[in-house]
């Protein structure tokens, strides 16, 4: 089983001291990683076979660790993000976005438009709009209050974007902290868009592999994808650094800024290894998601 473990999702606890990882066998691994980094030993905190299906998404609220799993009855897959009004937005495998009130668990709204399953959702930090990306190749902007579609962009239709991956899916998005720029990653590589005008500003053709996950940090978009590397890209689309990782491809990247000390970056993907970067430019250590401790 250890040979075939794939870590789909990563998430930090609100206190910033724990790291949760969800894998394809429905297990959630919690690492007490701050202590672990101090000693360079992985302290394995707890393990639970929580669900029977793969855990595709993890996010944490102030009190809950929310797992996006495979709902066997409806056949959805979820990726979700939490906004400040305590509403959990889930992008599902049937191409809809559902908003749930976390306290009551009731469905607040649903947004219809995507033609295929949704890969990721982010909230626009300025306009509080919800942005979603999908297997159908489109990125759509939604008004949270109405709820209705505001705009749509389709990166795969732009000629300047490379089509090396095949297909048109967009698997990851990230916005910068001011809400000016957005990065889309997927089969079309990495492209950077101006949020207000929703126009393509730069494409990053140096990244030749499909992009699976993107985060924004300190003026750079940091991506992982179908190769052995973590890639740092500026808003202009220039690659500034590539750092090797132990898995290939990588499916998840997370930065922990809740710690008082330096932020910590971690990546995970097509193996049971989770790579930890204290300095963003070289790998510090790796954790293993395995029961054989």
């Amino acid at each position: 089983m250890d040979m075939y473990g794939v870590v789909y999702s990563l998430c930090y606890s609100p206190c910033g001291k724990l790291l949760a990882a969800g894998d394809n066998f429905g297990r959630i691994f919690i690492f007490q990683y701050v202590d672990a980094l101090a000693n360079y030993i992985c302290i394995f905190f707890c393990i639970g076979v929580v669900h029977s299906g793969p855990i595709y998404a993890l996010t944490s609220t102030s009190t809950y660790l929310v797992c996006g799993i495979l709902d066997r009855i409806v056949g959805y897959k979820w990726s979700e993000i939490l906004d400040k009004e305590n509403i959990l937005y889930c992008g599902c495998g049937d191409g809809r976005i559902y908003g749930y009130d976390l306290k009551s668990g009731h469905n607040k709204c649903s947004m219809v438009g995507h033609e295929d399953s949704i890969h990721s959702i982010v909230l626009d930090p300025q306009s509080k709009a919800c942005i979603s990306s999908s297997e159908d190749g489109s990125v759509r902007f939604w008004d949270n209050r109405k709820p209705s579609q505001i705009a749509i962009i389709e990166p795969y239709k732009h000629q300047q974007l490379s089509h090396h991956g095949g297909g048109k899916w967009i698997s990851a998005m990230a916005t910068d902290t001011d809400g000016n720029w957005m990065a889309c990653g997927g089969a079309t590589g990495l492209s950077i868009w101006h949020l207000q005008s929703r126009t393509l500003t730069s494409s990053c053709n140096d990244i030749t592999a499909c992009v699976r996950d993107v985060v924004f940090y300190d003026g750079n978009f940091i991506t992982v994808g179908d190769n052995h590397h973590v890639t740092h890209t500026t808003i202009n689309g220039e690659v500034t650094a590539t750092i090797p990782t132990s898995s290939s491809p990588n499916f998840a990247i997370q930065i922990n800024e809740n710690l008082n000390s330096k932020p910590v970056l971690c990546t995970a993907g097509n193996s049971i290894m989770i790579d930890i970067f204290i300095n963003f430019f070289y790998k510090t250590t790796s954790f293993q998601c395995t029961c054989s401790y």
């Binding site: 793969p54 595709y56 056949g75 297997e135």
Partner: peptide
């Protein structure tokens, strides 16, 4: 469903009754 999840898993499992392919639902 043509693919699912971050790694875009293909529907490898065959269900006899409708005769269709689906992604694995149990781990």
């Amino acid at each position: 469903q043509s693919c699912r999840g971050r790694d875009r898993v293909k529907p490898y499992k065959y269900l006899e009754n409708p005769g269709c392919f689906t992604t694995r639902s149990t781990a």
